[in-house]
């Protein structure tokens, strides 16, 4: 046995799950790809683990009125192969395919990933570029938070105690848009040292809309609004990429310094913009 002891629960409804979390000693288990490693290191030692896998409907990926709703328990693999995602928000599918390896994608969930808010997770770059909304449920009801406001700091989100991520909502990408998720994978862990997600919409020779999300560079994913504005204002990809990460805080470790990460973000933003433009109609 590696982790501390805990009691294990599999509630059948969200209400039941919320009630189990009320005393504050419980942790939610979705796919376990972040929580279980933390528990094995005893960095997390919850008294109880509340596994959401038996709650019906939390896995569904559906499409309605120009928006795609992805249930929090949808796995990365379900997202990468979903025809709805491929057709309506392919950027998210591309980011999902880039996560870890197939065994991790079979277990890990989008809800678990966003709630954990690893500063080097792949999804957040795509979610901020897609202007996704995170839907949260608590005993007081439901609310939604914009992705760009959800990721507050490393492993810190806008969630309150007693809230559960129930879905991610994304507006459909227009069919004429180009998109690209580019990452520099850490050679050992596969996590992005830096990941950049780009969406662009052309208008004649110019760019009518640009969205750029960056993950891994700093303590949380962010939108490179300065670079987006340059692209929309007629600047070239190189000029826009050169300002990505300006004024943003950076993370630094033995593998990559903060300045190197900022450099990588710019190089890969340039490549992602170029690739997205070739896909745009």
């Amino acid at each position: 046995m590696i982790s501390n002891a805990f009691s294990y629960h599999t509630p059948e409804t969200l209400e039941e799950a919320l009630a189990m979390l009320e005393d504050g000693g419980g942790k939610i288990l979705a796919g376990g790809m972040s929580l279980i490693p933390l528990m094995k290191l005893r960095l997390a030692s919850p008294e109880s683990v509340v596994d959401l896998r038996r709650i019906p409907g939390l896995k569904a990926i559906t499409e309605e009125g120009g928006a795609v709703r992805i249930g929090a328990m949808a796995t990365h693999h379900e997202i990468e192969i979903s025809p709805v995602i491929r057709g309506k928000c392919p950027l998210l599918g591309e980011a999902a395919s880039a996560i870890g390896d197939i065994q991790v994608r079979n277990m890990g969930t989008i809800g678990g990933s966003v709630a954990h808010a690893d500063p080097a997770a792949d999804y957040p770059a795509a979610l901020v570029a897609l202007e996704a909304r995170i839907r949260l449920r608590s005993a007081n009801g439901e609310r939604t938070v914009e992705a760009s406001e959800f990721f507050v700091d490393a492993f810190t989100t806008a969630m309150e105690a007693g809230e559960i991520v129930v879905a991610i909502e994304v507006k459909e990408e227009e069919a004429s848009e180009g998109f690209k998720y580019e990452k520099v994978a850490h050679p050992a862990s596969g996590f992005p040292v830096v990941g950049v997600a780009v969406r662009v919409k052309k208008s004649g020779a110019g760019i009518a809309m640009a969205r750029i999300g960056v993950t891994g560079m700093g303590p949380h994913a962010f939108r490179a609004r300065n670079a987006e504005a340059l692209l929309e204002g007629g600047a070239g990809a190189a000029a826009a990429a050169a300002v990505v990460g300006e004024g943003e805080e950076t993370n630094s470790d033995l593998y990559a310094s903060g300045e190197y990460r900022r450099h990588l973000a710019r190089v890969h933003a340039g490549r992602a913009i170029a690739a997205a433009l070739t896909r745009a109609l």
Binding site: I2, Y8, T10, L29, G32, M33, I36, P37, K40, V49, D51, R53, H77, D101, I102, Q103, V104, N106, M107, A188, S189
Partner: peptide
């Protein structure tokens, strides 16, 4: 490795490959 990197512990769970070192047995109920 017992840290979900090496894949030596991979088994199939309902037809999907998973790393059994990063799963509690009770999740397979």
């Amino acid at each position: 490795c017992e840290t979900s990197i090496c894949g030596a512990c991979t088994v199939m769970l309902d037809g999907m490959a998973v790393k059994s070192c990063t799963m509690f047995a009770v999740q397979a109920e």
